[in-house]
């Protein structure tokens, strides 16, 4: 996989192997795998607030729609390649925040499931280790987005 900045201020991701494809398709799958929806986690932070009811009624649905829309964006970008390898995925400058958001959702979901801070690589099960690699890969993509797109 190659990740390259574009002249328009976006990123181009070249998928060259089936593993590259698998890694990218894991992003939305991981993001949808959270035990508690991210918007609901945020809503809990407002539980003690006098305006909690309004927050739940007005803000929570917006956050849910926004976070779901981020995942859909990535799913549609993957679908647009037709699943053929080699393939290119373009992240346009205007979509940088949304791509960053879905990568964040994926990392939050993985961390909630595996608690990476609790042990080091030597003690990880194979499933946890592959999840850790995905987590690191998503972080690397986020760094690329921050460096080249979200400036």
């Amino acid at each position: 996989m190659n990740v390259l900045p574009t002249l328009e201020g976006g990123l181009r991701i070249d998928l060259e192997t089936p593993i590259d494809w698998l890694l990218m398709t894991c992003i939305p799958a991981d993001a949808r795998g959270t035990p508690v929806e991210l918007a609901d986690q945020f809503n809990e932070l407002m539980a003690e607030d006098p305006g909690a009811t309004d927050w739940r009624e007005y803000v929570l649905p917006d956050l849910r729609a926004q976070f779901d829309g981020q995942i859909t964006l990535v799913e549609e970008a993957l679908k647009s390649t037709g699943g053929e390898i080699p393939a290119q995925i373009m992240i346009y400058r205007a979509d940088g925040d949304r791509w960053f958001g879905v990568l964040n959702q994926a990392r939050l979901a993985l961390d909630a499931r595996y608690h990476f801070e609790d042990d080091d690589g030597d003690e990880m099960t194979p499933g946890k280790l592959t999840a850790w690699y995905r987590y690191r890969h998503y972080s690397a993509l986020q760094h690329d987005l921050l460096r080249h797109v979200m400036r």
Binding site: F42, L45, M46, V59, Q66, G101, L108
Partner: peptide, 16 residues
Amino acid sequence: EFYAQQLQSLQLRAAM
């Protein structure tokens, strides 16, 4: 409220 919503929409754990 506006800022807390903005921060949450950008996935920071914000509260008031």
